[in-house]
Design a binder for these strands. Structure first.
Lengths: 146, 146
DNA sequence: CGAGAAACGTTAGCCGGGAAATGATTAGCC
DNA sequence: GGCTAATCATTTCCCGGCTAACGTTTCTCG
């Protein structure tokens, strides 16, 4: 199996497990933190907006929002001016998670790159960034080519 | 949001989408290729063995095996000596996918690291490997510490 | 103004992945 | 030898993610 692909997915799996456990400690499921992050930055966003920003499909956001509403983290309300839109609003509980969750994620990041010098950390980000750019180009060949 | 965690998950998402599309071209769903790879290396393995090797839970393998059996990629047969065990055997169709699928994944890997010098590629693998090691240690603190 | 097009959210159905409970079979030990 | 332990696979139920189909509401254009 390809070296990079293999290592990359293995790494992702273990990192994801850690992230999952860290979020669970705050009563969240993996992935819900990114939806919350979108609202922390822009409360009252619509499912479509969030989906686009988080790079996920709208149905995914809708389902997560349903569960998170049931969990008391946010509320749904239709936009009064444009009744096609639905806006998601944080509850106090949802807002209260911002600081502890952000701290938790920052701590995880620190632990994962413990032992890295600033230069190494920088190199890793740069190289990963190039892979990301290459992957993005492959999935949606923007610009260039004629 | 943490820099590395963010970039890492974004990259994984796009890479995964590419991998998914590539596998779909061969009639597979994302992830099924790793199960097949396990069988290509050791036909007749049990769900538990595969799960351990692929770092996934047994139920996941069982469910995938059910679908892949229905798709004609493999067959289930209980071990004659130990009837608790179930052994998964490749069908001709499952075996026939090895070469094209491996080629496809190798090609994807090449495309993702296009433009990388050998040294850069090596650095990326090394750095990712360190993150993987750190994550593994965090999830199951083996050895050390007293 | 009114009908068709466009923009949104929602639902349904599938897949991979996990935890917990169940069921069957074998291993071990008194 | 028989009863309890351990070992496996399987089932059930969640969650995140995607695609496709659907229903509403708003736009737009004749």
């Amino acid at each position: 199996m390809p070296e990079f692909l293999d290592l990359f997915s293995k790494t992702h799996k273990t990192v994801r497990a850690l992230s999952d456990a860290a979020m669970r400690a705050h009563g969240l499921h993996e992935g819900q933190n990114v939806l919350l992050a979108a609202l922390w930055a822009h409360d009252g966003a619509t499912p479509g907006e969030i989906a686009a920003q988080v790079r996920v499909t709208t149905p995914t956001v809708v389902k997560m929002a349903t569960r998170m509403t049931a969990a008391g983290l946010l509320t749904r309300r239709r936009d009064e001016k444009d009744n096609r839109l639905v806006r998601l609003w944080l509850t106090d509980a949802g807002r209260a998670l911002q600081e502890p969750v952000e701290a938790e994620r920052h701590e995880l990041e620190t632990k994962l790159t413990a032992g890295f010098s600033d230069a190494e950390r920088e190199r890793l980000l740069t190289l990963l960034g190039r892979v990301h750019a290459a992957a993005s180009d492959l999935s949606e060949p923007r610009s260039s080519r004629r």
